[in-house]
Design a protein around this nucleic acid. Structure first.
Lengths: 243, 243
DNA sequence: CTACAAATGCTCATAATATGAGCAGTTCTA
DNA sequence: TAGAACTGCTCATATTATGAGCATTTGTAG
C-alpha cells in the first residue's frame, strides 16, 4: 500500500488499457484515471517496451503478447500443491509411507505432490494410468457417464495379476469406490504396493485426490477404513487452508 | 526508459516470479535482481494485492489469476484490425462500396472490420456462414483436406437461388477460387449483393481475407479481376504494415 | 514441545526519482 | 493541403521510493 506509486499507476494502467481492449484512446484512459498525460505516456511506453501492451494504432493500445506468455505459466494447481505439501509430508512421516496428491488430466493421473518414503518409480509431474492406482480409481469414480464411457473404450492393460482389466468389473469397482468414499488399490499396479485414496472435491474446477501407499501387508483392505480416516482428515485440512 | 524506476522493477519482478513459477523463493529472485529485500517485498506485496501474483506458501509466489483474466482479454486480431482499418476505409471510399476483413473461426466467418457504405445487416464481430460469402469461400479454399471434409459434412442452406449447396459443386468452386487467387460471390448470400475477396496469408497463425462488396451490377464476375487487383494491393499494404 | 530460521511487517531519514508543464516534431484524417 | 491528435523531449521541483534495522509471526526440524 505505502510506496511504489509509479508501480501502482503502471499496473492500474495496464489493467485499464487491457480491459478496455483498444476501444478508447490511451489519453482518455490516462486522464480518466487522473494522471497527467505525460506520466501516462511514459508508463505506457514502458509497458509497450516490456510487451505487456501493444500499440494497435495511433493512440490505441491493447494487451500484448507477453501478457499471454506470462499467463500461460500460471499453474492452476500451484496453490493447492503448496497447501497440500506440508500436510502430506506430516502424514507420510507419521505413517512411514508415501503420500500423493493427484489430478486427472488427459485420461491419466498426474502426480502433483509426492512426499515421504522415496521408493518406487513415481515422481512429481509423472503421469500414470488411472485404472490401477488408488488416486486414479477415486477420480474415475467421479467422472460423468460419458467421460467414463470414453475412458473405458480403451483397453485396460494388466500390470499385475490383480489389475482389473474387465470394463464391467471396473464399473462395479468404481461404483463401490464411490459408495465407500475411498478407493483401495490392492496390488493392482505393483505386487509390492497397496494404496488408499480419498477425494478432494472440486477445488478450482478440477477434482483432485490424495493417497497413502506402502507395503501391501499394512496397506491391505482390512486396514483401509483406518487409513482412509486419516486421509480424510488431511483432505479436510487442505480444503480449509485454501479458504 | 527514463523515469518509472519502481514500475520497471515491479514489472521485471512480475516476470521473474511468474516465469520461475514458485520454484525459487521470492527473496532469492529479489536479491538475484540486485534489489534490496525490503523493496522487493514491497513490490511483491503490491503485485499480490493486485492479483497478478499469488502467494503459494512461505516465501513462494507465482503468477496470479488476474494475469489470466487480463490475458484472456488480449485479442490476437487487435493489431491486424487496426492496421487494416484505415486502408480498408480508404479503399471503400474510393470504390463507394463496403470493405471487410474476416477470419475463419468456429466453422464460420467472423467479420473483424467493416468500413464504407453502412448498408446491410453485417456488423463487426458478426459471424456469418462461410459457404456463401467471398471471404468465407476464400478461407475455405485454403483449409486442409480433413478440415474441409468436416465442414462440408453439414448441409449448406441456400440463402438465394444462386447459393452453392451441393458439396461436390462447392469443392469445384473452391478449387477454382484457389487457382484464381481470389473469390467471387455472385449473389449467393443476397440477391442485391456481389463480392470479391482476396486472402491475407497466415498472419499471426490464422488465415484472414479482405473483401469488397456492393451492388451486383458493379460487383459482377466480369469486373472481378480489376477489383481483385485493388484488393491485392491493399492486402500487400496491410501485410507490410505489420512488419 | 522447544528452538531455530526464514519470512513478514513496520518505522524513518535521506536523496534519488517521478512528476507534469511546455514545446517541437510527426503522423494520420478530413 | 490544413488541421488535429499523438508522440518525444527537456528540466526544475518536491514528492516519493528507498533500504537499513528491528519486532513479530510462521513454518520446520530435532
Amino acid at each position: 500500500m505505502s510506496g511504489a506509486q509509479s508501480a501502482t499507476r503502471a499496473l492500474a494502467l495496464l489493467e485499464a488499457v487491457t480491459l478496455d481492449g483498444g476501444r478508447s484512446s490511451a489519453n482518455e484512459i490516462v486522464v480518466g484515471m487522473g494522471l497527467a498525460p505525460a506520466t501516462g505516456r511514459r508508463l505506457i511506453a514502458l509497458l509497450v517496451e516490456r510487451g505487456l501492451l501493444m500499440r494497435i494504432s495511433r493512440g490505441r493500445y491493447a494487451g500484448g503478447d507477453r501478457l499471454r506468455q506470462l499467463a500461460s505459466r500460471v499453474s492452476p494447481h500451484a496453490r493447492l500443491i503448496e497447501a497440500a505439501r506440508p500436510l502430506l509430508r506430516r502424514l507420510a512421516q507419521a505413517e512411514r509411507a508415501t503420500a500423493y496428491l493427484g489430478v486427472f488430466e488427459g485420461e491419466m493421473v498426474t502426480y502433483l505432490v509426492k512426499e515421504g518414503v522415496q521408493a518406487g518409480f513415481t515422481r512429481e509431474q509423472n503421469q500414470l494410468e488411472a485404472y490401477c492406482t488408488g488416486i486414479g480409481k477415486m477420480l474415475l469414480a467421479h467422472l460423468t457417464e460419458t467421460r467414463l464411457d470414453a475412458y473405458l473404450a480403451a483397453p485396460l492393460v494388466p500390470l499385475t495379476e490383480r489389475t482389473i482389466t474387465d470394463p464391467v468389473a471396473m464399473r462395479a469397482e468404481l461404483d463401490a469406490t464411490r459408495a465407500r468414499g475411498y478407493a483401495i488399490d490392492n496390488r493392482e499396479m505393483a505386487d509390492d504396493l497397496g494404496c488408499v485414496a480419498v477425494p478432494l472435491h472440486k477445488l478450482r474446477g478440477s477434482d483432485y485426490a490424495v493417497s497413502l501407499s506402502g507395503p501391501p501387508t499394512r496397506f491391505h483392505p482390512e486396514n483401509a477404513p483406518e487409513i482412509a480416516a486419516k486421509l480424510q482428515q488431511a483432505a479436510r485440512q487442505i480444503s480449509q487452508r485454501l479458504g
